[in-house]
């Protein structure tokens, strides 16, 4: 693909979660009560640079799809409502799955999630 470029946009979601309610002896965590994070969601798109517009992806279109698909769903939510085990790993996988069903599915490269300054998750590479 000529002139392939990767565009990353950063969004934020504020979520709560509780891990020790999962009845899973494999989960070792200090997170014993419901708590929250202000997370960065990095969505990377890929594709050729359009010769006329100079864009790989329309900024407004990406914002609209992300807002409708991800932000409206997860922002200001409790992740336990969506995920049986609401870890960062499962969240990045769920967001990836949601976007692969959206109008941006063909351009999606990867979703990454910064949960805290110490925790960062990278989802699978899509559309390889």
């Amino acid at each position: 693909m000529a002139n392939k470029c990767f565009i990353t946009k950063k969004y934020q979601i504020r979520c709560s979660h509780l891990l020790n309610d999962c009845n899973n002896p494999g989960i070792k965590t200090k997170e014993t009560s419901l708590h929250g994070h202000h997370m960065d969601v990095l969505v990377t798109f890929k594709g050729p640079i359009d010769e006329e517009s100079g864009l790989t992806v329309s900024r407004d279109f990406a914002d609209q799809v992300i807002k409708n698909t991800i932000l409206n769903k997860y922002d200001k939510s409790c992740l336990n409502d969506f995920l049986a085990i609401p870890t960062g790993e499962n969240l990045v996988a769920a967001i990836t799955k949601d976007l692969l069903s959206s109008k941006l599915s063909k351009q999606l490269h990867q979703v990454q999630l910064k949960e805290t300054n110490k925790n960062f998750f990278s989802g699978p590479i899509c559309n390889e």
Binding site: A2, C5, T8
Partner: peptide, 11 residues
């Protein structure tokens, strides 16, 4: 900006 960046790896 701190919320938008492009990566280019050449042809």
């Amino acid at each position: 900006g701190d919320d938008l960046w492009a990566d280019y790896y050449g042809q």
